[in-house]
Design a protein around this nucleic acid. Structure first.
Lengths: 145, 145
DNA sequence: CGCTTAAAGAGACTGTGTCTCGATAAGTAT
DNA sequence: ATACTTATCGAGACACAGTCTCTTTAAGCG
């Protein structure tokens, strides 16, 4: 990611490096606040504005993608797959393959006059281990869809 | 929607009615702020808190779905879909159909031990009108991906 | 080593969403 | 109809995300 920034003409600074480390070390989906907190471990004076600026720069180079989530914006590395299994139990995110199928709905989008640049698929549910726990708790009043 | 609320045990008030009218009259994707503005036309004293409360109630009854967008949360009547064409030019979001294909990768996810509860598909690109504008600007120094 | 300028940090500002609290009115019983 | 109970109201405080501006700093060049 660092070389990517550099090649795009951005300077490599302490703050930027701190953000990059935070992104590499952190979870697959991170919020700006998390990046700030993680980044401060490397660069103590890291500011919120710098985090947003760097995130924006990374997005511009295509190394990162911002996507809306129920709790504000989260950032995802694009080197990671763009098909995610998001566990609603533990919050864990794993990738899965399925790009062959992706090309199937590109024509649908293009029929609407839309030119497709990319896509993101989020599948929500419960991962294996959370599912096993769920069995223990039986149906303990979960009213959500 | 009104009967739906009533049946669920909610009282029908002036404020609630104002919100319902706003939802029915407004665009397919509306923000809470838009609902507030539209609702004030019917009920001048409508407050932000009431909007959120009503929106929450409607979500609980299943008449509405909240979904994250780049500019905060937006609300969609559940009759509308969960496959989005997100325009990177103007930020507009439109739905498209494609649920038949969705069932194709559910087995892939389940092979990983994942139980699927729902999904969200975001296709990024440029909408028709933004595409036409793009042609006018030709390659006018846009370094963005 | 010094210059130029992109990028930094600090903090003000805006907007969204949540929460509390006393006041109000919806629905029910009288 | 009228009174009562209590869900709901509006107002405003609060917390937080994200943006913006301004002055200072340091990255990368010669």
């Amino acid at each position: 990611m660092e070389t990517r920034l550099k090649d795009a003409g951005y300077r490599i600074t302490q703050s930027r490096r701190a953000v990059l480390r935070a992104l590499e070390g952190g979870p697959a989906h991170v919020s700006a606040a998390q990046v700030l907190a993680l980044g401060r471990k490397t660069c103590k004076t890291l500011s919120r504005a710098s985090v947003y600026r760097t995130l924006e720069a990374l997005e511009a180079t295509g190394a990162l993608r911002a996507l809306p989530s129920p709790d504000g914006r989260v950032y995802v590395r694009v080197t990671d797959g763009h098909h995610h299994l998001v566990c609603q139990g533990c919050g864990d995110v794993q990738d899965f393959d399925g790009c062959a199928l992706c090309n199937a709905w590109a024509p649908v989008a293009e029929a609407e006059g839309f030119s497709v640049a990319g896509h993101l698929l989020e599948v929500f549910g419960l991962c294996k281990s959370c599912r096993e726990e769920e069995v223990v708790h039986v149906s303990e009043g979960s009213e959500r869809s």
